[in-house]
Amino acid sequence: MAKSDNLFNIRGKVGDLIFFQRNGQTFVKKNTGGFVNGKSHEHPRTKAAQQRFKEVAIFVGRFKKALNPMIWRQKDGTFHNQLMSFFSKIRKESTQENFYLTLIDAHEKGKLQHKKLNKNSKLNPFDCTYSLHENTLFIENNLSHFCAQKHPTACLEICFGWMYYNKELELELVYPQYFYYSLVENQNPRQKITCELINDNEKVTEFALPIISITVVNQPNSSAVALHPYHFTLTTIV
């Protein structure tokens, strides 16, 4: 970029030069094309990036819709964007050829588990573990103790389900199971919450993610009301 006297007050493109003004002075630079004037939008890398974004957007839209039975009490307007950010990062870091293989690879490497899918939650996803061998969900006493400090008479609504998906990124939440835990009745500081799960043996598919959602509610039933729209809810893959 060079400064120009520009006696004729020229602006815009002249041949392979571009004249423009900044702070009352005129500058000139060589026209290198760029996204609009060039053909970078037709570049294979650009098209690949657009395809990756499309895959993530399709997955997130379907994922959020399938997850709704577990998270319908959550009222966080930024949740969709949080999911896009999380899964876009997973896709960007992957060398797999499509998003289906990306998810399998990321799960096997532990990149999906114990992450806050709703980042505004104050609950710790590392307090939640799932034993495939025992088919049992465990919630550490740290989580219940933290919730009891803020809401001592409340309950925890704990929901577990399998998110099945196939190569076409079609998703289904299978057999969500609900458990209720009274914070006022269970004040043992060493006691874990143990949820023994039921298998859904009739469901056959290619791959699935074990997902839990925890919400602090006012009573131990499906008519309960969440005590905070997002701080005291947690959605995570275990």
Rank of each mutant, 00 (worst) to 15 (best):
F87L: 06
Q187C: 11
F99A: 02
Q82C: 00
V216I: 08
H41E: 12
K111F: 14
Q149T: 13
Q149Y: 13
D200Y: 10
Q177F: 01
T194Q: 13
Q149I: 10
N218F: 01
E202K: 09
V56P: 03
C195I: 04
M163P: 05
F59T: 00
N142G: 05
P220V: 03
V238S: 08
T205Y: 10
R45V: 13
K3N: 12
V217A: 07
E168D: 15
K39C: 13
F86S: 05
N37K: 14
I90V: 11
S213R: 03
F146K: 03
Q96P: 00
I18F: 02
Q50C: 03
A2E: 14
P189G: 08
N188Y: 11
H228A: 13
G24S: 06
D105G: 00
Y165C: 08
F20L: 03
A226I: 07
V238L: 12
P210F: 05
V174R: 05
C155K: 05
F27L: 13
Q177E: 06
V184D: 14
M163K: 04
N218Q: 02
I212L: 06
E42K: 13
H133C: 02
L117A: 07
T102R: 06
F20Q: 08
I211Y: 01
H43D: 15
P189F: 11
G161E: 07
M84E: 09
F86C: 03
I211E: 01
Q25W: 00
L156H: 04
I10Y: 03
L137N: 05
N201R: 13
K92Y: 12
P210I: 07
Q25M: 10
R62M: 01
L101K: 08
K3G: 14
N37M: 09
R91E: 11
V174G: 02
P229S: 08
I211D: 02
P220D: 11
N68D: 07
P125T: 09
N186F: 06
N9Y: 12
K119G: 00
N98H: 03
K167Y: 08
Y175A: 14
H151M: 13
I214Q: 06
T215N: 10
V60I: 09
F207W: 07
L171H: 08
Q82Y: 03
F179L: 03
N120V: 13
I212Q: 05
T153F: 14
I10E: 11
T26L: 01
N37Y: 13
I158G: 12
N6K: 05
Y180G: 11
K119V: 13
Y165R: 08
N201C: 02
Y130S: 03
N124P: 06
A57K: 15
K3I: 13
N81F: 14
I212F: 01
V56K: 01
